[in-house]
Amino acid sequence: MQKMAQKLVLPFIFFSVFESAFALDSGTQSLGELDGATDYFKITCAGNTDHLDFQLFESAATVLNTPLAKPTLIPPQILNATLTKLKLTAKASGIAAGINKDVTLKGGNGSYTFTLDTIGTNLTLKTAQTYSVQYQCLNTTGKVTVGSSTLTKSGIASISKTLANSRTVKYLFNCAKDKINGNTDSLKITVINKTPIAKTVVTTTVTTDPIAAPISSGNLAAQVIKGHVAMNTIGDILNVHDDRSGGDGYYSVMVNSPSNKVQSYHFQYSCLNTSNLEEQTSPFQLLQDQ
């Protein structure tokens, strides 16, 4: 059937995951409906190859046994600040981790309501955000007037607070006439988002790589022959070792279906030395594609 792909799988990925390296090379094929259909390959091993590891996978599912990491920037966690007094409102949105933003409302003397929420934050990051608030009541020339709050004193950053995703918190601030600087014109609040910036900028993404789960249904079988050694698999890893003629040379591989099932499949193989380290593994040669 039609050859779908033949590719090299980066060996270092597997070396980093498995001490015993496996699957330097791989291929994806489809077995057709011909009665007795058999795909036939040759694999060449060189160097100091002791044996060939071979594994067959059914490719019908998109389940991956080796998800590949795909770089993706993680959206930041954010806070939104809203300051209200009667019908007056001022907002500062999208205050990301490590960012300071001011929100100022010209409401004169009196009580202000300050609200923090996390609408629009990255919900995949579960850690509560940490913030601090600093405020000042100001007159029309920007001079400090009298202010009070249970959160902190005027002009002094509050102790650090936390706010979990999807939660909202409210604080009250009062501004009054100052003996020296006169009436309050506005309340200025600085929000300091102290949340650590996410260090992980890579998420693991399931890709369309054809690697799938090993089969055990018996719908497909593969035979590997080297010299006088012949082995069969329906999904388990084969370790084909020919102690008469050695590990170098040609390995014949056949894939077929005892039920004549039309089936795509994937296989991985690796030429390994006696220490299970990679030797010279070449791309497979397709001799027959049925």
Binding site: G36, T38, Y40, M254, S259
Partner: peptide, 20 residues
């Protein structure tokens, strides 16, 4: 019990036979 198959190979040709 498992089905028995045989493969006949000659040069670059291979074919599968299964007793169903």
């Amino acid at each position: 019990m498992p089905l028995v198959s045989a493969q006949v190979i000659k040069d670059n040709y291979a074919s599968n036979f299964t007793d169903p």
